[in-house]
């Protein structure tokens, strides 16, 4: 590679830096406000960092609010949704990628169709469907709704990962003595780990931060997820920004841990060396 002119390299790096700053600034502000004691919040004006920091907001949110409950609910809902969707989508994505069957065209068309509606349109019908079944105000109901909405996209995502895996591999496995399902589980699935990680991550974050359905289908704190819970810091007369931001910071933690765990798979090109490159 030829050395690029220094000025271009510099401009390139600066552009990246500017973008990162822009993207991360809201997060920084979240952290800053969450650490600012209430008495300084409005008195100090706009400063990059308060003159005194405290963990009071965090302490309050963890010990005296319903936040741990919201947090637990969200974890259950997002985790289950991610599991259900990924399991279903890897099977259906595999089927779409590998098999020719009669209704394939129409199934794909229907799945695309579901992605075309603004979700707001569907809130009322879904409420009508779920309430006689006793699934409003329940985490199960949320998991079902989230799964239904995420499966089509996740299926297409997984399909594209399966498409990238040479067919020869599972044919070789079948000749070696594997059934179709064994070839899928022992050869194809391990090679799709990056795709599975991406799908799990995508679905988890989508479910973690979903607000519309959570707000409409859940009333009361018992089954509220954390995005709904955040709204409880908004009262009629004031917004408790410090506590709200502290809750927000806490809510970031699982997503961070999560991506930290799966990032190894996201960046890895596992199929290298499968077939002649």
């Amino acid at each position: 590679m030829r050395a690029r002119p220094l000025i271009l390299t510099l401009a390139h790096r600066l552009a990246i830096l500017a973008y990162i700053l822009f993207a991360l600034f809201p997060l920084f502000w979240l952290l800053k406000v969450s650490l600012t004691p209430n008495d300084l919040l409005y008195s100090e004006g706009v400063r990059m960092w308060p003159s005194r920091t405290s963990f009071d907001h965090f302490r309050f949110v963890i010990a005296h609010s319903d936040f741990p409950l919201f947090f637990r609910n969200s974890l259950i809902v997002a985790g289950s949704t991610a599991l259900v969707v990924t399991a279903v989508a890897s099977l259906s994505g595999y089927a779409l990628s590998r098999f020719a069957f009669r209704a394939k065209y129409w199934i794909v068309a229907l799945m695309l169709l579901t992605q075309m509606f603004p979700l707001v349109m569907l809130v009322a019908p879904i409420f009508r469907l779920l309430s006689p079944l006793g699934l409003t105000n329940s985490l199960t109901g949320l998991v079902i709704v989230y799964s239904a909405f995420n499966v089509p996209f996740a299926t297409f995502l997984m399909q594209s990962f399966f498409d990238g895996i040479p067919k020869d591999l599972e044919e070789a496995a079948k000749i070696d003595g594997a059934t179709q399902f064994m070839a899928f589980r022992q050869i194809i699935l391990p090679l799709t780990l990056p795709g599975i990680a991406a799908t799990v991550g995508f679905v988890f974050t989508a479910a973690w931060s979903e607000l519309l359905f959570a707000l409409m289908l859940i009333s009361g704190n018992e089954a509220a997820t954390f995005p709904v819970g955040l709204l409880s810091f908004v009262s009629k007369f004031s917004v408790d920004f410090g506590q709200m931001m502290a809750a927000g910071v806490l809510a970031l933690i699982p997503a961070c841990i999560f991506f930290f765990l799966i990032q190894r798979y996201l960046v890895q090109g596992l199929t290298a060396g499968a077939v002649k490159g």
């Binding site: 044919e171 000749i175 070696d176 059934t179 391990p190 596992l270 199929t271 060396g273 499968a274 077939v275």
Partner: peptide
């Protein structure tokens, strides 16, 4: 008969080695 029950071995042009 499924391939697995035919008891044959095959060498592919692409080799089709299991990368993992």
């Amino acid at each position: 008969l499924a391939p697995k029950d035919r008891d044959i071995a095959m060498v592919f042009q692409s080799y089709a080695l299991y990368p993992h």
